[in-house]
C-alpha cells in the first residue's frame, strides 16, 4: 500500500482539473431535490456532502447498449466509440460494493463484453460516506460506510482537508504529479473517528443472514400479500409495479433485448436496456402465458433477489443504499419486509 496523502479542500479544484486532463470526470451534483452523478466542469459543482443519488453509477455501465448492428445477412458488434477514459468521483461504499458485485455477475459462466468494456474504461475515486441518509442501512450489511477495496483512490473528508488513500497503480498515477502532503497517523485516526461518527447516524438496519432461505421457503408468507396486494406493512400502500425499486437498485441487472430495424427493414440494431422483474411483461412466455402475473409474485421475486435468494445470488443482493425505499411511491421498505419474514 502506498502511503496516504492529504489534499487541502481549497486544492480540490486543481485536483479535479488535473483529473480532467486524463478523464471525463463524473461526480455527485445537486439538482432541484436530489443528487445525481453528472459530468463535472468545475469542482464547485461537486457535492461531497451528498447522501445518495437517485440513480446509482450503474447508469455508466449497464443502462442501454447496442449489442450489434445488422445489414442484410451481415452483422457485427459496433466498433467502440470510447476514447477518453472516464472517472467516477465520490463513489460511496454501497455503490462501490454494487459495482464489485456486478463485476462478478458479468464474469460468471459467460463474460459480458459490453459491461466489461465500459468497466475497463473507467476509474473510481471513492469517498467515505459521512452524510448518512434516513433510508441508508449499509452498516448493518457490512457494505459501508468504510471502504476496503475496489477503488483507485479513496477520499475521506477530515474537515479542512481530504485524506487520500491509494488503491491501485492507476490511482497512484492520478496523484503522482501533484505535490501532496503526506498524511500522518493522526490523520488516519481522524478518519476512524469520522467513520465512527457516521455509524451513529444510521436509522435503519437489516439482518441479512438467512433471508435468502426464508424468502424461498415462505412463498405464501403474509408479507408478500401485504406489499403486493393489500398494503399496510409499516404504513405502505400496495405495490404499483412501477419498477422504480429495481431501476434505482445498484445491483439490479435484468435486461430486455430488442431489434430496432430502420425503415429499410433490412438493416438495424439489436439493443439491450435495463428491465425490471416488477413489470408484468417481464415474465411473459409464449402464447400469452405469464408465470408471475400476480403482483404478489413479482414483489416476492424482487425481494428474494435482494436477499440473495434469486439467480444472481449475492452478486445481485442488497447493499443497503436505501434507494428503493426513497424511490417507492408506495413507501415499501425492504428492511420492514425482512423483519416481517423473520417474524420480528
Amino acid at each position: 500500500m502506498k502511503p496516504a496523502k492529504k489534499l487541502m479542500k481549497e486544492e480540490l479544484g486543481q485536483f479535479v482539473d488535473h483529473l480532467s486532463k486524463e478523464y471525463l470526470v463524473y461526480g455527485p451534483v445537486a439538482r432541484r431535490s436530489d443528487f445525481s452523478f453528472q459530468e463535472i466542469d468545475s469542482a464547485e459543482d461537486l457535492r461531497f456532502d451528498y447522501t445518495t443519488t437517485t440513480i446509482p453509477p450503474k447508469k455508466f455501465f449497464h443502462h442501454r447498449q447496442t449489442l450489434l448492428r445488422y445489414s442484410g445477412e451481415d452483422y457485427s458488434e459496433l466498433e467502440s466509440t470510447l476514447e477518453k477514459r472516464f472517472l467516477l468521483l465520490g463513489v460511496h461504499s454501497c455503490d462501490l460494493n454494487a459495482i464489485l458485485r456486478h463485476d462478478r455477475l458479468f464474469t460468471r459462466q459467460f463474460h459480458d463484453p459490453y459491461y466489461l468494456k465500459l468497466r475497463r474504461n473507467s476509474a473510481i475515486v471513492a469517498l467515505i460516506c459521512t452524510h448518512i441518509g434516513n433510508s441508508c442501512f449499509c452498516a448493518s450489511l457490512g457494505t459501508g460506510p468504510t471502504i476496503r477495496e475496489g477503488f483507485d483512490l479513496l477520499l475521506t473528508d477530515l474537515g479542512n482537508e481530504y485524506l487520500i488513500e491509494v488503491g491501485s497503480s492507476e490511482g497512484q498515477r492520478m496523484i503522482e504529479e501533484l505535490n501532496l502532503q503526506k498524511a500522518n497517523s493522526s490523520d488516519l485516526e481522524k478518519k476512524e473517528e469520522r467513520v465512527k461518527l457516521a455509524l451513529t447516524q444510521f436509522v435503519k438496519s437489516m439482518k441479512m443472514d438467512g433471508l435468502n432461505q426464508l424468502a424461498l421457503k415462505y412463498l405464501d408468507h403474509e408479507v408478500w400479500s401485504l406489499i403486493g396486494e393489500k398494503g399496510g406493512l409499516a404504513g405502505c400502500f400496495a405495490c404499483l409495479s412501477c419498477g422504480n425499486c429495481s431501476l434505482v437498485c445498484p445491483t439490479c441487472y435484468c435486461f430486455e433485448v430488442a431489434d430496432i430495424p430502420e425503415l429499410s427493414l433490412n438493416q438495424g440494431v439489436r439493443i439491450r436496456e435495463l428491465d425490471s422483474c416488477q413489470l408484468l411483461e417481464y415474465a411473459e412466455v409464449a402464447l400469452g402465458g405469464n408465470f408471475r402475473r400476480d403482483r404478489k409474485a413479482r414483489v416476492r421475486q424482487w425481494m428474494t433477489c435482494k436477499f440473495g435468494g434469486a439467480g444472481g445470488g449475492f452478486d445481485s443482493s442488497c447493499v443497503g443504499c436505501g434507494r428503493c425505499i426513497n424511490a417507492c411511491p408506495s413507501h415499501i421498505d425492504i428492511t420492514e419486509v425482512a423483519k416481517s419474514l423473520r417474524g420480528e
Binding site: R31, R32, S33, D34, S36, T54, I55, K59, H63, R64, L240, S241, C242, G243, N244, L247, V248, A258, I260, E273, L274, S276, L279, L280, E281, N326, A327, C328, P329
Partner: peptide, 23 residues
C-alpha cells in the same frame, strides 16, 4: 414492440429527478 410498463421506467433510465417521491 410497444411498451406497456410505467413511465417511471423511462424516467429512471433518463436519470430524472423524481417529482412524486422527492417533491
Amino acid at each position: 414492440h410497444l411498451k406497456h410498463h410505467s413511465v417511471c421506467v423511462e424516467c429512471k433510465l433518463k436519470d430524472n429527478n423524481c417529482l412524486l417521491t422527492t417533491e
